[in-house]
């Protein structure tokens, strides 16, 4: 607890001060790290808290991104109205998948496959939605990089940094609070043993569905950020299976089901990936794929030696150190 609080306080201060200390490159790495922390937190609600494995979360990123970006490109309406639309679209999609999966008792790995199937289906669908650019992509008008236009989310890296920083802090606080609610307890009970949870009165179907819907809606906000930060959307990239996988690495490696795990994981992984690329580039070798290989090896090592994840392992070490 004390370790968590100290860690949280330090991260918060460092996070607020970062734009003054960091170079533009470091800031861009931080933005990506925080984005993965954010979507990792959103995924963690569904899998870490409620125990429902989704390997298709890129679908909610994509739906959110396309909803908000489409609204902006075609009507000029900014992300403040685009975000609610994105959430609604993703929540409906999540509710549909969850309803079908849970109603037809698709469990465990089969449920994960169902989420992949829907994500892939949606990817190909978007390839053919010509109104939204199809496979040719959807492009947002690139705004000025110097000024700050919060209404339309147009501006430079510092603005985007603070936006994703606030989003990440907010979702972390939300996770913390959720775990302490009735719903949070019921999710964890379902994750541990759904039948036993049902026997003590937890309405399993509805409670699981809530986890999927909340996770989907929050993930879609990550998609809105993605759209306005990168300004280009390709179904091939945003709905990719590899993105769905990359999104879940941070919470798994950091510690599934914990509040700070996804954050710690993302702050560990993204810079590590950058470092690897830099080292490999320094050696003069082509670097495509090397980051994922490192992540894969790391994932195996964590699953093998730190099954709870890095963050719980760290807190246990600190607790031990204090006792001695």
């Amino acid at each position: 607890m004390i370790a968590a609080r100290a860690m949280g306080g330090a991260l918060l201060l460092a996070g607020l001060a970062a734009p003054w200390l960091a170079s533009e490159y470091v800031l861009s790495v931080l933005i990506v790290s925080l984005w993965f922390a954010y979507v990792g937190q959103a995924w963690n609600i569904m899998m870490g808290f409620a125990g429902q494995l989704s390997l298709g979360h890129a679908m909610y990123v994509g739906l959110g991104a396309y909803a908000a970006a489409g609204l902006f490109v075609f009507t000029g309406i900014g992300p403040w109205l685009g975000a609610p639309l994105a959430v609604i679209v993703a929540v409906i999609a999540g509710a549909g998948i969850g309803w079908l999966g849970f109603r037809f008792q698709v469990k465990g790995v089969y449920f994960a496959l169902l989420t992949i199937a829907f994500a892939e289906f949606t990817r190909i669908l978007f390839d053919h939605i010509t109104v939204l650019g199809g496979s040719g992509g959807l492009f947002l008008p690139v705004g000025q990089r110097s000024g700050v236009d919060l209404i339309n989310l147009r501006g430079g890296p510092v603005m985007f940094y603070y936006v994703i920083f606030v989003m990440t802090v907010a979702i972390t606080a939300l996770s913390w609070a959720l775990l302490r609610t009735r719903l949070g307890y019921q999710w964890q009970a379902i994750r541990e043993d759904a039948e036993a949870a049902e026997a003590v009165g937890v309405p399993v179907f509805r409670t699981k569905l809530l986890a999927v819907m909340l996770s989907a809606g929050l993930t879609a906000l990550g998609g809105v950020f993605f759209a306005f930060y990168y300004n280009t959307l390709f179904p091939e990239q945003i709905f990719a299976k590899s993105r769905s996988i990359e999104m879940i690495l941070a919470p798994i490696i950091g510690g599934m089901g914990t509040v700070l795990g996804p954050l710690v994981g993302a702050l560990l992984l993204t810079p590590l990936g950058e470092l690897t690329m830099a080292v490999i580039a320094g050696l003069g070798v082509t670097n495509a794929g090397v980051r994922q290989v490192v992540f894969g090896v790391l994932l195996i090592l964590v699953l093998w030696f730190l099954p709870q994840g890095v963050w719980p392992w760290l807190t246990q070490r600190w607790a031990k150190g204090r006792r001695q």
Binding site: I245, V290, V293, G296, L299, I300
Partner: peptide
């Protein structure tokens, strides 16, 4: 399942490298 996801990442991206 995740273990084999990791194996998959390593194999596909080693091929890419």
């Amino acid at each position: 399942f995740l273990l084999l996801v990791a194996v998959a990442m390593i194999l596909a991206n080693t091929a890419l490298m």
